[in-house]
Amino acid sequence: MAFLIDCPNCGRRNPYEFRFGGECKEAPGPDADLNTWCEYLYFNENMSGFQQEWWYHNMGCGDWVKVRRNTVTHEITED
């Protein structure tokens, strides 16, 4: 409970102050082939549970925040 995103600058704020940036993914290396790129671009782990994800505080300080969130319970933990 208490689905709030902890912004290091602004404190705990409502998630609707942020823009969701998706799960954190490792971009393919310089020699990656097309399949690797397509998998990176279109396929997701889409975790039901904890995942690392990006949130952009667009209504606040304008920083990107990396958050570890449980997508089922919305519990947020430290990295």
Partner: peptide
């Protein structure tokens, strides 16, 4: 100091 939204306005 608070940066936030008000009625959809930053």
């Amino acid at each position: 100091y608070v940066a936030t939204g008000s009625h959809g306005i930053r």
